[in-house]
Lab assay of single mutants.
Amino acid sequence: VCKIPGCTKRYTDPSSLRKHVKTVH
Rank of each mutant, 00 (worst) to 15 (best):
P5W: 02
K3S: 13
R18I: 12
R10D: 09
Y11N: 07
K3G: 08
C2P: 06
V1R: 00
C7I: 01
H20E: 09
T23D: 15
G6N: 04
P14F: 07
C7A: 02
T12C: 08
V1E: 10
Y11G: 10
H25F: 00
C2M: 04
H25G: 04
L17E: 10
C2S: 04
D13H: 06
Y11E: 14
T23A: 13
R10F: 06
K3A: 04
I4T: 02
S15R: 05
G6P: 01
K3E: 14
T12I: 08
T23M: 07
V24L: 04
V24E: 15
P5Y: 03
V21Q: 14
K3T: 05
V1A: 02
Y11D: 13
T23E: 15
C2K: 00
Y11A: 07
V21K: 01
V21C: 03
T8G: 13
S15W: 03
P14E: 15
K22V: 13
P14W: 04
S15N: 15
R10H: 10
D13S: 08
S15V: 10
C2L: 01
H25Y: 00
K19I: 12
H25L: 01
V21H: 04
K22L: 14
V24M: 09
R18P: 09
P5H: 03
T23G: 09
G6S: 01
K9N: 10
D13Y: 02
G6Y: 02
K22M: 15
T23C: 05
S15C: 10
H20D: 10
T12D: 15
Y11F: 13
K19E: 15
V24N: 08
V1T: 06
K22D: 15
V1W: 00
G6M: 04
P14I: 09
V24W: 06
V21P: 03
S16P: 03
Y11M: 09
T12M: 06
R10N: 09
C7H: 04
D13I: 00
K22F: 12
D13G: 01
D13L: 01
D13F: 02
I4M: 10
K9D: 12
V21W: 03
H20G: 05
I4D: 11
V21F: 03
P14K: 08
K22S: 14
K22P: 06
K9F: 15
P5M: 05
G6V: 00
D13K: 03
G6I: 00
V21T: 05
S15M: 13
C7N: 02
R10Y: 04
S15I: 08
L17D: 10
C7P: 01
D13E: 12
T8L: 08
R10C: 10
Y11S: 11
